[in-house]
Design a protein around this nucleic acid. Structure first.
Lengths: 109, 109
DNA sequence: ATTTGCATCTCTGCAAATGGAC
DNA sequence: CGTCCATTTGCAGAGATGCAA
């Protein structure tokens, strides 16, 4: 049976939950992804760029990770239509293209 | 991870999360309702503002809201020490000052 | 701790090309 | 050949950042 790995202290857990709420780029939180946010993933969590922005310390990295997830969410909500998504998030299409490429977002369509 | 005796509020948080993950219909959690469960997003800092970056559509607004909350989290983790926080998030102190001011973050001290 | 000036880098919008499907 | 739309690219202006006061 899988058991969640809880953070070491109350404050950290509270912070994680709050950040989970604030950072989640959609209107909803996928129940499936919650366990990974609270540290239920397998293996060690080294300083690599793996994992969510919640685990990142650098503002720049966290911001980028958030932006990536946000864009993915909005793309899904708009059926992976660049133009619609760009308009929805008030970003130029060309810039959205640039971000998609730089973040390596896979356009599965 | 080793298991020890959780303080009462940790157990309560655990229950809340399990409810959110397991009992939520449609496999999604309304992000807006989570804060009310755990009492987040309230207090002197943003009593008037309801909701978070989740409701924002513009990438720019969402990014700013995220950044603000991220910085607040890190400030709390570092006892509201600017220098320590700046080092932790790898941002120049002067820039952290600028962001704190522009985001209107209340340094309760 | 906080602010400011400045050089530098990055991001953004706009427009203009390029590419591809039809 | 055109037409329509997605994608890319070239700038110039706006914004963010680090550094040193």
């Amino acid at each position: 049976m899988k058991r969640y790995e809880w953070p070491g202290n109350v404050r950290e857990l509270k912070n994680i939950i709050e950040r989970l709420v604030i950072m989640t780029p959609g209107r909803t939180i996928s129940a499936a992804q919650v366990p990974s946010y609270i540290g239920a993933q397998e293996g060690p969590r080294d300083g690599a760029k793996q994992g969510s922005a919640l685990e990142l310390s650098s503002l720049r990295e966290a911001r980028e990770e958030f932006e990536k997830e946000f864009i993915i969410q909005k793309l899904e909500e708009n059926d992976w239509n660049i133009s619609k998504t760009a308009e929805a998030i008030e970003l130029e299409r060309s810039n959205l293209h640039r971000k998609i490429k730089s973040y390596g977002i896979d356009m599965k369509k």
